[in-house]
Write a protein that binds this DNA or RNA. Structure first.
Lengths: 248, 248
DNA sequence: TGATTAGTGCGCATTTGTGCGTATTTGCGT
DNA sequence: ACGCAAATACGCACAAATGCGCACTAATCA
């Protein structure tokens, strides 16, 4: 196996799992931990993954929760997320115009998206766009100012572009999901983009693990009833019976 | 077997497998590893594959890998390019609105750009945008469809966004530079973006090594006189005396 | 026909990648 | 705060891959 291929394999594993330990990688790729460590150094320098004590995590995860060790891998939601994304991806229909919001959950969704005829994906995240294009999807990027932390595009240009589009369906992430306070997120500008993009979408889906139910972030971008929520895991009883909540 | 056929065979194998080793190719094509290595060098120079230690990988796969590794491979024009970029970067003034075209030379330019007060950089390349944002620059991305090969944005959305902007200065790459045929590039859509972006820019600079002089690519995006060309190396005598050519 | 040139194979010095042992650092539980 | 176990960094040795010069062959052209 080419060293280059091994590097790509590591990136793939990290992206899919969210985080991996050094021994796991060494075992999977048939090389020693030393080599893995050297690889991780190189990949970290190239900003393709984030190296942490014990292994590596994907970049999105790394910047959300600053320098945590591999120990606290929140892979608890891992299986859940996989199921959520698989379910959500099945909702995309041929010949449709699909919006993909920025965020780590929707990034995961991209891995599951079908390569259907005539589907165009539109996103506000340059990172998501790269992944989509890499998978051979027809990809459109909103314009606007690039927020370094989230790789998301915001501002009047992003909003103006959205105003010209109408999507068949779309997928969003949400930091908070509550019946009264609605769907919430920490950033004002990103909330605007979410709000406008939802307004131009016929079928709106929020994909999220169960931990977000009952949480409230600073800025509201939609009412609870505005989207169908696809989730999995321990959903609070209060939300389980709601008819816009799908638990997989 | 013709050498040319062998080169094509190598490209095909690399494309299909994603990556191959030197011994594999030598075995399959009945030549020694030395010959394969020479072939890979040539194909890498022609950007048909990416040569890596131990073999070669397809460009798509390598793109991600090579991208963010800032220390690009040292080719012949390396010193020249450094000088060109340093000279060009010095032209950016505080409080200005600057356009950065996609391409490998302009990517190099980004590393030299000053972190001045009130400067906003606008680009049609998601890759360039990521680098700019990473360096802490205020960064704006044009919208539009993402071309996977070049990571550049094209189409009506990109052009519409450009129509709303007016830049103080801008930097472009060019595949061909000729007095009669003007500035040329291989891709029609990217040519459109170059053309419109130049139209909205006061001070236009093309940065290029000397090898592009006299070359002509399929699509013209500007007249020779439309931009100041910053270059270095063995510039043909015919162009040396022109007053819009700066040799560093 | 003889000279020139591009392409190929081979040997050798150098560079690069990998694994292992050891000293040091880090994180976690007491 | 402390100690222990795990993870890491560093140096070294070995193997693999590479680049380069040289010799040889085949094709081209005067």
């Amino acid at each position: 196996m080419l060293a280059e291929d091994r590097l790509n394999a590591i990136v793939t594993m990290v992206q899919q799992a969210g985080s991996v330990t050094v021994p796991e990688l060494a075992e999977a790729l048939g090389v020693t931990a030393s080599t893995i460590r050297r690889d991780l150094q190189a990949l970290d320098r190239a900003h393709r993954i984030a190296k942490v004590h014990g292994g590596a995590t994907s970049l999105e995860r790394a910047h959300v929760t600053r320098d945590l060790t591999i120990n606290e891998r929140s892979d608890l939601h891992n299986d859940d997320k996989e199921r959520i994304c698989a379910r959500a991806a099945a909702l995309v229909e041929p010949e449709s115009f699909v919006y993909i919001d920025s965020g780590s959950t929707t990034l995961r969704l991209i891995e599951h998206l079908p390569r259907l005829e005539g589907v165009t994906y539109v996103t506000d995240s340059v990172l998501h766009a790269q992944h989509l294009a890499l998978r051979g999807m027809r990809t459109v990027v909103l314009g606007g100012e690039l927020k370094p932390e989230t790789e998301a595009l915001v501002g009047p240009d992003a909003l103006a572009t959205l105003d010209r589009y109408n999507f068949n369906c779309g997928f969003w992430g949400s930091n908070g999901i509550a019946a009264e306070q609605g769907l919430t997120t920490p950033d004002i500008e990103e909330a605007q983009v979410k709000r406008v993009s939802m307004r131009h979408t016929a079928k709106r889906f929020v994909i999220s693990d169960a931990s977000k139910f009952g949480m409230v972030a600073p800025v509201k971008f939609a009412d609870f009833r505005d989207a169908t929520i696809i989730t999995a895991g321990e959903v609070p009883a209060k939300y389980q019976s709601m008819d816009n909540v799908i638990t997989v």
